[in-house]
Write a protein that binds this DNA or RNA. Structure first.
Length: 548
RNA sequence: GGCCCCGUAGUUCAAUGGAUAGAACAGGAGACUUCUAAGCUCUUGAUCGAGGUUCGAUUCCUCGCGGGGCCA
């Protein structure tokens, strides 16, 4: 690749001039500044006791010429800019296929990514959509980096929330076979638990009985509710485009975690009847692992989870995607894990994402103040159907509406840095115009629409002299993907695709493709764009429909 | 009280310590009887404050102020 060639030239010259600093080749933000740029003259100036401009001149003179580079110039405070030759872009276009953007950076690694993590008996809300969007994209970025990826989902099928839901089912005469009823039941139970002493006692009794298999009535509700929830989640995963390889449940991790904690009396300490881990010894805080009533907490369960993961699929790396509110908890849990499961602990990575906030205030499934995943998707879907009115899409319409709806939602999550909160205003934040998932899909379908008419003529030869902006952006794709994967930041891909799609749309509006002088090259270019967009959207977990 | 995250146009988001701080939405104007107008072109508009490090700070450090979260 041309990038490596330039890099090697500059490094060679730098070494020759006695510059002992890493050479970094950037993409200039402004395309007018060239295709690659380095600030080595700026960073080296002090050590060489010369002005940045003088250093740059020396370097440029020493480089001379590079094959595939037409112009090397010094600009601004001392940047060295490289302009690629026409032919270099033709080579890039020629090389774009289904594997475009992939690399072998972690080839042979086994990586498990755990995300989404909804709780049976509770609602699947937009926070879970957020975790799903980020986790799925990170999984795919890891896949593009050459690793073998397994997707895992960890769900809380035991605990007080279950008892609250069961109580609600009984009191309100709801049907545990219906996922929507469970959400209502939970909200009612949670509310009563806080405000009604009698209800609280009843719920505590249920909580104790859930694990007593002989009690048939409660267990019937439990079994019905659990499978109704899980079946409902599966429908959502199908629409969202996630297929999990592993499912872990708290009912399984709890006993395992309990055993791990009990087996390490020197690591954990007794405190008021509870078993705690004193995080202070590693600069953190104390957390309870087993309550005074002998029940394992989330902390203990997570130890069990880590061990289960490693047993079922020995991994090189396990990435957990959780909300930022859990990062304090996670670091203490991980510190404890380093002591009791050291071999596993060093392979654990935590990605914490921001919170979805309703513009009105914090969302809470306890009060029923939530936007559920399905209601949001349904709303987006109907908007999409409205936009499609008058288009001849036949019986694909419903399916396309789903992919557009999901694209809008995922894009709104993946366009910003992972750690930041998302202010979610249902009226405003999900758009189908500009800077949106559907915008990317739309650019892709337009390209396909052109190709459908004359794809057989596409050939990367006889290019027009002028290199359009979007063609100049194409070589950046693999680097963008690499960086996004390295930093677990899908938004680099999102930002890039938006820029690329915008540039393509401008070109498309200004240029006629079919039946023009450079038809075959323009078609090849359109094809290259479509492939880049398709691969990029795939990395975001967004489908690229052929028509919309 | 301790710890973590965040603060950029009216709004929602970008900007591996670099060049003129980018988009989109909203607002204003416009083109096209051309391959999908969910599109295109033009336009108004921003770095919370005070110090510090640096040739250069939205980015790093310190202290404030403001928002979110976790813990006791």
């Amino acid at each position: 690749m041309i990038r490596e060639v330039i890099q090697a030239h500059v490094e060679g010259v730098a070494k020759k001039l006695g510059i002992d600093m890493p050479v970094i080749l950037d993409f200039p933000a402004e395309l007018a500044h060239g295709d690659y740029s380095t600030n080595i003259a700026l960073t080296a100036a002090k050590a060489l006791k010369l002005s940045p401009h003088e250093v740059a001149e020396k370097i440029v003179k020493e480089i001379g010429t590079i094959e595939g580079v037409t112009k090397i110039e010094i600009a601004g405070p001392g940047f060295i800019n490289f302009h690629l030759a026409r032919e270099a872009f033709v080579d890039v276009v020629k090389g774009i296929d289904e594997r475009w953007g992939r690399n072998d950076h972690v080839k042979g690694y086994k990586v498990m990514v755990e995300y989404t993590d909804p709780n049976p008996f509770k609602q699947f809300h937009i926070g879970h959509l957020m975790s799903n969007a980020i986790g799925e994209s990170i999984s795919r970025l890891v896949d593009f980096s050459g690793a073998e990826v397994k997707r895992a989902n960890y769900q809380g099928d035991v605990g007080p929330h279950v008892a609250k839901a069961i109580w609600g089912i009984q009191k309100l005469s709801l049907d545990a076979h219906h996922a929507a009823d469970l959400g209502k039941a939970y909200a009612a139970g949670a509310e009563a638990y806080e405000n009604d002493q009698k209800a609280k006692e009843e719920i505590n009794i249920i909580n104790a009985k859930v694990y007593d298999r002989p009690d048939t009535e409660i267990n019937k509700i439990y079994d019905a509710g659990r499978s109704a929830s899980l079946a409902h989640f599966e429908e959502l995963y199908k629409v969202l485009g996630t297929k999990f390889d592993f499912y872990f449940f708290e009912s399984e991790t709890a006993p395992k975690g309990l055993a791990i904690v009990r087996a390490h009396p020197t690591v954990f300490e007794e405190s008021d009847g509870a078993v705690v881990y004193k995080g202070e010894k590693v600069g953190l805080h104390t957390r309870v692992f087993i309550t005074s009533r002998g029940l394992p907490t989330y902390e203990a369960k997570d130890l069990g989870l880590a061990e289960m993961k490693a047993e079922q699929w020995p991994f090189d790396l396990s990435i957990s995607i959780t909300a930022t509110e859990q990062s304090g908890y996670f670091s203490v849990m991980l510190a404890a894990m380093k002591e009791v499961l050291p071999d596993i602990a060093k392979k654990i990575q935590h990605v914490s994402h921001g919170m979805m906030q309703l513009s009105g205030g914090k969302m809470s499934s306890r009060t029923g103040n939530v936007v559920t995943g399905e209601s949001l998707i349904a709303e987006m879907r109907s908007q999409a159907l409205g936009k499609m009115e008058g288009r001849e899409l036949g019986d694909e319409k419903e399916k396309i509406a789903d992919t557009v709806a999901v694209a809008a939602i995922k894009y709104s999550v993946l366009k910003q840095a992972t750690g930041k909160n998302i202010i979610f205003d249902p009226e405003q934040s999900l758009s189908f115009e500009g800077d949106s998932g559907p915008y990317l899909q739309y650019a892709h379908t337009r390209a396909l629409s052109v190709l459908a008419k004359a794809v057989e003529k596409a050939e990367a030869k006889n290019p027009p002299e002028q290199v359009p902006e979007f063609e100049r952006l194409l070589p950046r794709f693999p680097d963008i993907v690499f960086r996004a994967a390295k930093e677990n930041e899908p938004h680099y891909v999102t930002t890039y695709l938006t820029q690329l799609a915008g540039a393509f749309n401008s070109w498309y509006a200004a240029e006629k493709i079919i039946g023009t002088e450079h038809e075959e090259y323009k078609l090849a270019l359109t094809k290259a764009f479509a492939q880049t967009m398709k691969n990029g959207l795939w990395l975001l977990g967004i489908q690229a429909p052929e028509r919309m």
